[in-house]
Amino acid sequence: MTPAMIEITDLHKSYHNGATPVQALRGITLSIRPSDFLALAGPSGSGKTTLLNIIGCIDQADRGELTLAGIPIPSRNARPESRRQAREITRQQVAVRRKKIGFIFQNFNLIPVLTAQENVAIALTLLNLSPEEVFHRSREILGEVGLEGLENRRPGELSGGQQQRVAVARALVKNPLIVVADEPTANLDSETGASILNLMREIHQRRGTTFVFSTHDPRVMDRASRLCLLRDGTLQEEQERVLL
């Protein structure tokens, strides 16, 4: 049996919405395989984004266990013994994000003052690669996502679909093990959304990168190899699908 890329056991997370406590995740247990093109689906407030944030190491679970590519990611209840240890945990999470995870956001989240190529390059710069390699690889990936010739345009000069392609390129350029995408097609028209999804699937199949994305669009759910339905912070249903 293939070892899991992401192992989640009894994950809990709550936060405050103003004065109201919200129980976002209530004991999620899930095992995500390297070959998964997994969609987290469910209505608003079901915990999709919270789960994605925790998987992406930009948020911390209150309790439960999370292992990413064999690396245990501590929950909030695993309180560090010292400030030094807390700093070490933060440093480890930053390193995991930098090397192993690629992010695609609903609003693209590109840096507006940088060109498409520079937006992609920033992910590689953080890995301390040589400027030549950064340039070469960022150009190459932009070609791969169909943005050849648009490398020097700034986000404001690109369409929504093109911006999301830059975001996909930025997420993939460092060859991450996992790509986390929060509603990647929500801000796009259906045609562009479909093309972005096709691109993600194509890359998943070509590179074998694990994709975990959230959606509430049934057309997007249909394209996933695995579908996890969340409701009120619990995993309601899991479906295995065959990618066509």
């Binding site: 930009i58 933060t90 930053v94 930098r98 992010f103 953080l126 930025r170």
Partner: peptide
């Protein structure tokens, strides 16, 4: 602030 969040999500350290 959102850009800071994006850079942080990409793995930019607090010091950087």
């Amino acid at each position: 602030t959102r850009e800071i969040g994006t850079l942080s999500a990409l793995g930019m350290s607090e010091g950087t």
